[in-house]
Amino acid sequence: MTSFGTAVAVITIGIGIIGLILKKNLIMKLLSLSIINTSTILFFIMAVYTPGDRAPIGPMGPIQMADPLPQALTLTAVVINFGVLALSLLFTMVLVKRYHTLDIEKIEASVKREYNEEET
């Protein structure tokens, strides 16, 4: 089960990266980024999972317990992903307000045009 869990996490990371590269819509890019974030956390947690683990809460004894270290590592990452996501949505809003489109290629084209106009 561990290997299947990590395999799913790696495949979802791959899907997220492909979406990040191929999608031309800025919002779709952000959504793919969210997929990558979640899958990375999943990878951390699934990598140390063995079947029959219970939550690392309670007296520490002979009972089989999930590894608390990756949980401690990834817990803060969830909240930070949210903060970063909100910031990147804000920048998308700024871009949309200026260029009136979500298409990254159109934005690039108009940036290039503006730059050329400034040069001449």
């Binding site: 919002i27 979640t38 956390i41 817990l75 949210f82």
Partner: peptide, 22 residues
């Protein structure tokens, strides 16, 4: 898989906040 702390945080953030903000 025995990570309730992460589950609570991810549930509140991923399901409620991120969706709502989008």
């Amino acid at each position: 898989v025995g990570a309730p702390d992460v589950a609570v945080t991810e549930g509140a953030i991923g399901v409620a906040f991120v969706t709502f903000i989008y």
